[in-house]
Design a protein around this nucleic acid. Structure first.
Length: 356
DNA sequence: AACGCGGGGCT
DNA sequence: AGCCCAGCGTT
């Protein structure tokens, strides 16, 4: 089969030049692969430079705190990637002498490394002949062979796995995998693919059937759920003139785990008209009605996630004198400077951009 | 197998 | 407004 030869020829002429290519350092490749999970290259590349700069090797990453790693990941989303990367780095530093496992099966045992990432690292860093199936590859193959099985089922995955195993280059598996991904993102794009410059156009079954847009097949997605957040932005100015905020770290199995935010009241329905309930909440936070003053009217921000629509209201509150017990026990009192260094979700960053 | 997990670009 | 992106872990 000359598929891989033709693909690699295309790749050597048209492939992208990226900082994690042309390196033997498995750690660098690993970091790039984690950053690029469900993330476009354009979006992730800046984070890659900053991450490698801050943590140039496994040991520097393992020596960092989770908070430091999350702060660097801030704004990129899917924060479990950062937590798992950090966790795995500590495991490698502790149990593997700082060396990444040298094959895909052992790589897959590490936190945050699944079938795709294991195959990507093993093929690129260790020349293991194993196909890395990401959504680019699913798209390219589903169109080439008009695969009508959905890509997000076990049955479908097996079909694509088998196809790739037949096609993959044994001389340059890493190049093959990267070539497939570049081809998918540069030519066989999700929308408006560039079929006219496609080297496989004449063999492409989807193109022949004039059915490009029907591939790949995937299961329909769920509609986003609505959530209503009311944040109390509690500001206290001490006698020395220092400004303090009250913040908390999210710990639940939910969005933004281990990221920081303001005291939060969440409702299923829009609560903003119910001023009594909100004031009761603020009072319980601050101890009594005289302990605080609401500044102005709430600021509303809509925040769209892939699977949730968050309607957020920020209420700025000035705290006088002594704070309530609940505030002391459940929340951290931080200076503006310290707060700045904490990892925060985009929504909180957006609010800060508006008001501070 | 189904679900939850971000943020941003493209159409 | 909806779809998609160098997927993975949990339930």
């Amino acid at each position: 089969m000359d598929f891989s030869y033709r693909l690699l020829s295309w790749y050597h002429k048209n492939g992208r030049s990226l900082p994690w290519r042309d390196t033997e350092d498995a750690y660098h490749i690993w970091v790039s692969e984690i950053i690029l999970q469900q993330t476009r290259v354009d979006q992730g590349i800046h984070y890659y430079y900053r991450f490698i700069d801050a943590f140039p090797d496994v040991y520097s990453l393992s020596a960092a705190t989770e908070d430091q790693v999350l702060r660097l990941w801030q704004g990129l989303g899917y924060y479990s990637r950062a937590r798992n990367l950090h966790k795995a780095a500590r495991e490698i530093a502790g149990k593997h002498g700082g060396i990444l496992p040298g094959n895909s099966k052992d790589l897959e045992k590490l936190s945050g490394i699944g079938p795709y990432t294991a195959a990507a690292i093993a093929s690129m860093a260790f020349k293991e002949v194993v196909p890395a199936l990401d959504s680019n590859v699913y798209r390219v193959l589903s169109r080439l062979f008009a695969v009508s099985e959905a890509i997000d089922t076990v049955k479908g995955r097996k079909i694509f796995n088998d196809l790739s195993r037949d096609l993959i280059s044994h001389d340059d598996p890493g190049g093959f995998n990267q070539a497939m991904m570049d081809f998918g993102s540069l030519v066989c794009k999700p929308a408006n693919p560039d079929c006219m410059s496609c080297i496989f156009r004449l063999e492409c079954l989807a193109y022949k059937r004039n059915a490009i847009s029907r591939f790949p097949v995937r299961h329909p997605k769920k509609v986003p759920v609505k959530r209503y957040f009311v944040y109390a932005v509690l500001e206290e100015v001490s006698e020395t003139g220092e400004q303090y905020f009250f913040v908390q770290k999210r710990t639940r199995q939910d969005i933004w785990k281990h990221m920081h935010e303001f005291p939060l009241l969440e409702k299923k329905e829009n609560p903003i008209e119910n001023t009594e309930a909100i004031e009761a909440w603020l009072t319980s936070l601050c101890g009594n009605k005289k302990a605080y003053t609401i500044c102005g009217s709430p600021l509303y921000l809509k925040h769209q996630l892939t699977h949730q629509t968050i309607h957020a209201y920020f209420i700025r509150v000035r705290i006088h004198a002594v704070s309530g017990k609940k505030l002391q026990e459940s929340y951290m009192r931080t200076t503006a400077e310290t707060f700045d260094k904490l990892a925060k979700p985009r929504l909180i960053e957006r609010f800060l951009d508006c008001c501070f």
